[in-house]
Amino acid sequence: MGVPALEVLGISKDFGRIIALRGVSFSVQSGEFVSILGRNGAGKTTLLNIISGVSRPSEGEVKLFGTDPSDRENKAKLAVISHEMFLYGNLTAIENLEYYSRIYNVPNPKQRIETVLNDVELTHRRFDLVATYSRGMTQRLTIARALLHEPSLLLLDEPFTGLDQHAIGMLITLLKKQKEMGRTILLTTHDLHTANELSDRYIVISKHKIVMDGLMTDTNPDAIREKFFSAEAGGIDS
């Protein structure tokens, strides 16, 4: 087995007296799809911020492809999709994607932009200002932006929040496609059924530390819920 795509080694994070994470350790192999489950405030977003290099841990270390996550080479291999859009409302879809393709030095940007817009079914609205988009359309464009530079590691922070059924279905299809292409994917969610449909493996975070880590094939959502509830009352949606 080669160098893991991601290694999280004894991460702790506190914001003054508030503890966000305590001694979190796990590794993710290349091509693996891992879901991180946990209730709101469990520390999932903090963990993703540390993995993406935006935030530093109070203790412990993260390695992306064997090196520091804040390395520029690593950042170029990474994409984050969250409830934040990372888009400019006063620019059109094309202008937003052109901007990011220049920043990420995307080869053949015109062709690539056309492909990702087509994947998220937004070609017909490409010349419209993003401010005029619905929530679902904006999230689809967010996905297109994230996939633009063909990242090796996708970090998804509650990406289904606020999406309608059509957009959820489209995102699931896109994620399955990314998985087939061998991309490493880390998804935080509290939706067990979606996690079960997509992931190879699950990690449950409760009270700021990992309480469960296992393969999806070894269990089912009900079993995870059962175990989770025994660790802590309430939290994960079915």
Binding site: K75, V80, E84, F86, G89
Partner: peptide, 18 residues
Amino acid sequence: ALEKENGNLRAMALMPVD
């Protein structure tokens, strides 16, 4: 303020640039 809108400030921190 424009960058803070829609989390673009975080997008900047994620960019593979100096």
